[in-house]
């Protein structure tokens, strides 16, 4: 993706540009209002986080050098281990299902239908709704004793309906369900744009070759969608590793540690226990995991993504 961007940029550079002092000042006046803020409040903390992971600090007393201690400690920290596996549980549960559901919705909406904009708006709405409001209504709908979902299940003859977010086994699936519901509209819009960008002559050619609907989907639609699929899988994976708000409001990481994920653990370590260095080490693990997965995805991109 980056090489594509670079090519774009080179074309756009204007040849008439000469860098006199006055002209350079003009350029900086465009960049600096944003860059100063970006550098101070994002870049510097980002660089500092590398250092902080190797230090001990409670925010009040003297900073001491910890070396690899924080990282060594991670191996003994059972909460960290649980949070790590919970994070993967969440990511593996959320990413593929969200992709399938959002692609399915996009395929349905890509038909010549009346009111397709209305449908699109409805599907998209959960995405703009606030997480706190969404989380609280989910918790009420799935309330173990009184919630309408379980009352319905009992009426239908289910004897011991799941206790959803209140049970150790069901809490994570409940959260995964809520997060698919919330996010799918966004990815559906990306898929829909990609579907509408597939040139119709490809389908015409396939029809001449006698392809049926399934074959058209399998050999035209799916390959043509690979750039969008790649983009969606990247965005979704990164977003899923960062999950926080939904879990914080729905279960607070519980019951027990059943939904404690890396960001929740890092948050608690920093802002409840005031172990800033150790929290940074946890966050660094998160960063490294996201980085590795991004690199793997980019490597794999060459093999399965086809650009026309």
């Amino acid at each position: 993706m980056d090489s594509m961007k670079l090519n774009h940029r080179k074309k756009n550079v204007t040849s008439a540009w000469r860098g006199t002092l006055r002209e350079r000042l003009i350029v900086y006046s465009f960049i600096l209002p944003n860059f100063l803020g970006f550098a101070v409040f994002t870049l510097i903390p980002m660089i500092f986080s590398l250092v902080l992971a190797f230090m001990n600090w409670d925010g009040a007393n003297v900073v001491t050098w910890a070396g690899w201690d924080n990282f060594r400690q991670l191996f003994q920290d059972t909460t960290f281990r649980i949070a790590l596996s919970n994070t993967f549980y969440y990511v593996i549960g959320t990413v593929p299902l969200t992709m399938v559901v959002s692609l399915g919705l996009a395929l349905l909406l890509n038909q010549p239908l009346h009111g397709s904009k209305l449908f699109r708006t409805a599907f998209f709405f959960p995405y703009v709704a606030s997480l706190v409001a969404v989380a609280v209504v989910w918790n009420m709908l799935f309330h173990p004793a009184m919630g309408p979902v379980n009352q319905l299940l009992v009426t239908l003859g289910v004897e011991n309906p799941p206790r959803w977010s209140a049970s150790v086994d069901w809490a994570m699936p409940t959260i995964i369900m809520a997060s698919i519901w919330k996010g799918m509209g966004y990815y559906m819009v990306i898929y829909l744009a990609a579907l509408q960008g597939i040139p119709s002559y490809l389908y015409e050619a396939a029809a001449i070759d006698g392809a049926n609907a399934w074959q058209k989907f399998r050999y035209v639609t799916l390959p043509m969608l690979t750039p969008a699929t790649f983009f969606v899988s990247m965005m979704l994976t990164i977003a899923s590793f960062k999950v926080f708000d939904l879990i914080m409001v729905m279960t607070g990481g519980g019951p027990g540690r059943a939904t404690n994920v890396l960001v929740i653990h890092a948050y608690n370590t920093a802002f409840k226990e005031f172990r800033f260095g150790y929290s940074s080490a946890i966050a660094m693990v998160l960063f490294v995991i996201v980085l590795i997965i991004t690199i793997i995805q980019f490597r794999a991109e060459r093999r399965w993504v086809s650009y026309l």
Binding site: M46, F48, S49, I238, F241, F244, A266, F276, S280, A283
Partner: peptide
């Protein structure tokens, strides 16, 4: 880069 990885600094 996840914002959470530099929220503490």
């Amino acid at each position: 880069i996840p914002w959470q990885s530099y929220m503490v600094p």
